[in-house]
Design a protein around this nucleic acid. Structure first.
Length: 116
DNA sequence: CGTATGACGAGCC
DNA sequence: AGGCTCGCCATAC
């Protein structure tokens, strides 16, 4: 996939995550062609412009969570970023379990959904 | 060009 | 279940 920089590939993929669904860092990384680049995905989202859009297209960063189904934002209250992410998800109908975690079996975007 | 950094992840204990 | 360690990778300096 091209000579397109990793960050842009990542942003494009995130932009495709449908409303009401979520994806994990590792998932996006693999889709972007990075075998173990979960951290790189976090780095890319961290580098998003304030408007959170690329080429005029909105990048729903709040739909990206970690493999535990939890909001990662390294910690802290994070200037409210963490709570904004939770709010954004709830607004889309995603049910947040205790600890603000999401049931990946239910909301994970794309492919392999674990057969129950 | 080497070193440090992180919105992660999988293993272990 | 919860916490620590170590590995991975594109970037920034």
């Amino acid at each position: 996939m091209k000579d397109i920089p990793a960050f842009e590939r990542i942003w494009r993929l995130v932009a495709e995550v449908p409303r009401g669904r979520v994806a994990t860092y590792g998932q996006i990384a693999r889709m972007a062609g990075l075998v173990n680049g979960a951290r790189t995905v976090g780095w890319a989202l961290r580098a998003l412009p304030d408007r959170h859009r690329v080429k005029g297209r909105p990048v729903p960063w709040h739909r990206v969570i970690n493999a535990q189904g939890a909001i990662s934002l390294r910690g802290r209250e994070g200037g409210g970023e963490a709570s904004r992410q939770a709010a954004g998800l709830r607004r889309e109908g995603v049910v947040l379990l205790t600890g603000g975690r999401v049931d990946l079996r239910r909301y994970r975007w794309g492919g392999r959904r674990r057969p129950s």
